[in-house]
């Protein structure tokens, strides 16, 4: 037990220590010197912090917009993806085709998707949500399909021997069996979805959101520190969401091999 705690301390402490050292070196100008970068090209952490505090309320409202877009897109995309996996399981003959279509859709670059969705949706928020949703669908569909169908031997025979109806097979066997895969897909999609939301904001008609502001500030000479402040916020947001999902997963999947 104590060995486990120790293990955990090093697995969290070590990366944290490296991070702190890196920020300190950056603040002392070592990174800039090493890369031959001016503070215009790479602002110091202190300048970034000041910009973050100064633009506090604006940062929060921009972050909220991006967060809402990526979470809504994540929710819709994962929902559609899971539904496709269920359909493919129920009717393999044409259901599998839908998985192929989703995978093909996944190959379309986000940049192209963002431009297309801007044309399709009158609201900027709508187009962002659509981009994120499309990006999330395939990952969820393919992972969930595996979870719904990779059953242990005899698991279905067992239900059949009790003359269980088809919906019981889904509710009591296939769906719980797919949960580990669902969490894997959500974790991948969380990070990808956030990135897609940021990128689609580059091309958005709206003048709000983390992505839009990062793009705008990076173009302006005197706003570089603000741009970096937004990058930090975007990164933190992804990390926090990821940690939240991991904690939920640990609680829900206590029985799974990965948490033993």
């Amino acid at each position: 037990m104590s060995a486990k705690a120790k293990n955990r301390a090093t697995s969290i402490g070590l990366p944290l220590a490296v991070g702190v050292v890196l920020v300190l070196l950056w603040q002392m100008g070592v990174l800039n010197a090493a890369g031959g970068l001016t503070t215009m090209q790479l602002p110091l952490p202190s300048d970034i912090s000041v910009a973050l505090v100064e633009k506090g309320t604006r940062v929060i409202s921009d972050a909220t917009i991006t967060l809402v877009a990526s979470l809504a897109g994540l929710f819709i995309g994962c929902g559609i993806g899971y539904l496709c996996a269920v359909l493919a399981t129920m009717a393999p003959r044409w259901g599998r085709g839908s998985l192929t279509v989703l995978s093909a859709l996944n190959a379309v670059p986000i940049v192209a998707l963002a431009c297309i969705m801007n044309r399709w949706f009158s609201s900027a928020m709508g187009s962002k949500i659509a981009v994120v949703a499309i990006v999330c669908m395939a990952t969820m569909a393919i992972n969930a399909y595996r979870g719904l169908n990779d059953l242990q031997p005899f698991a279905r025979d067992l239900l059949k021997s009790y003359a269980a109806p088809r919906n019981t097979e889904f509710l009591k066997l296939r769906i719980p069996n797919s949960l580990p895969n669902v969490f894997t897909a959500v974790k991948i999609n969380l990070v990808n979805g956030m990135m897609s939301a940021l990128i689609s904001e580059y091309f958005s008609k709206d003048t709000v959101g983390l992505g839009f502001t990062i793009k705008t500030c990076m173009k302006m000479g005197n706003q570089k520190a603000t741009g970096w402040a937004y990058i930090v916020v975007a990164a933190l947001l992804s990390i926090v969401l990821y940690i939240v999902v991991t904690l939920v997963e640990k609680r829900v999947l206590r029985w799974h091999a990965s948490h033993r």
Partner: peptide, 18 residues
Amino acid sequence: RMQKKYGIVFQSPVLYDW
């Protein structure tokens, strides 16, 4: 089978992990 009069024990325990 429809009257649920069979109990089957398989080669593996086939317990549902969750």
